[in-house]
Design a protein around this nucleic acid. Structure first.
Lengths: 128, 128, 128, 128
DNA sequence: GTGGTCTAGACCACA
DNA sequence: GTGGTCTAGACCACG
């Protein structure tokens, strides 16, 4: 499914969170689709189930998946409201990032075109 | 100058780094301007000087400030060549961020207008 | 009749218990009225009949319904003597809840008016 | 500080959460006061530090305490905004509770007077 | 010394 | 078999 980078200093559960989130955002994992079980993923990554559990728990808190005891974990359909305040955090982070890019003289057009591309891809996925 | 947020889980030296960097990027600290001394800042924030020292050392490594022994630390004037590869990291991070914002149905126009604003401010500062 | 919330982490049989209890308390299910059969409910909720059975068994233990073999389950008419000690539990829980609400600076009037409303509705039902 | 009830079926970390929360709400632990360290409390309750950690983490998420690495955990001053949505959950729970109490024929006056008492105590604490 | 991460392995309730 | 709780014990980054 994906691999961990042991050179990366960020905690394993963070990496797992990011990978799963990316799979959801990119549409590889569809709404209400089942995510690998805690044990399955732990085995395939050869790490401890507790670490997966922690990653899943945080993904659930952030609204990306939901877990049902004795059933498994599933991708949250988007119409459900994702953790409010999360959007504001992301927008703030975006502003910081863009400020730095502007400071480094990255041309504005480059940013705008990248963003348009990303949104275009997103719309394509929704039309599938 | 700025305040630390103890609720924030990032280490103090990271917060200090980010705050100083933000002051440089926003133009509050001008090129070649003197940055507060380690001792001054330590006192005003009531934290250990070692923590400030660590922040300054990393800022120097990343090219934002330079220090002259017995004189203090100063804002690096050359914007361009800071940390090769840094730009790519920022752009990658930007893409991840925008993907998530698109997934959360933030309207594209909102992002574009924010970015234009940030760039406009940057140009104004350069004309001062 | 009602829906299950798979996002809720409480076990399914607990949710069923609470839903049925709420229907009884709110007067939707009248005293001595027949409660849907285990099989019916299991089918309409598309879950295992055992789960319904467990919920009903506990509702019976707590005094909210009684079942007659081969006839079905019915709402207990006698309100008063349900589960001695239950009242004290509820009152204790209420105190904890109100303490927390007071700590969060919820205005006292808001609570009082809500409670009056609930009691008013209860009286109306009894006069029907 | 307090004791655990091993007869109680709720998980240990939940009990710890409730106990600490009660100490905060009742004013025994004042804003910005230090809460026992993870290891201290673990030792005094003779349970695993991980369990305490989990309780503290959730208390932090709910806005009651904040933890600083290498410093300890502290009571959140009330002016900081507590987890929005929490209030709504509490009010919903209150309504369910009151509905049941009304159904059990607990006199309305009894509830109102209890609530007034609790709020009076809260005001007294704030005036200290 | 503090909170935070991670492992290995156990047991539980639920469906 | 699933997620969830808990223990015992290790190691790390931080201040």
């Amino acid at each position: 499914m994906f691999q961990l980078d042991y050179m990366d200093h960020s905690p394993l559960y963070e990496q797992i969170k990011e990978k799963i989130k990316a799979l959801i955002i990119s549409g590889v994992l569809k709404p209400n689709e089942r995510v690998p079980s805690v044990r399955e993923l732990a085995q395939s990554l050869t790490i401890n189930p507790n670490t997966i559990h922690k990653a899943y728990k945080e993904l659930e808190l952030e609204g990306y998946i939901y877990s049902i005891r004795a059933k498994g974990s599933f991708v949250t359909p988007i119409n459900r409201k994702i953790n409010p305040g999360r959007q504001d955090d992301l927008l703030l982070e975006l502003e910081k990032l863009v400020s730095e890019l502007a400071y480094l003289n990255i041309p504005q057009e480059q940013l705008l075109s990248r963003i348009e591309e990303i949104y275009k891809k997103g719309r394509q996925r929704n039309h599938d």
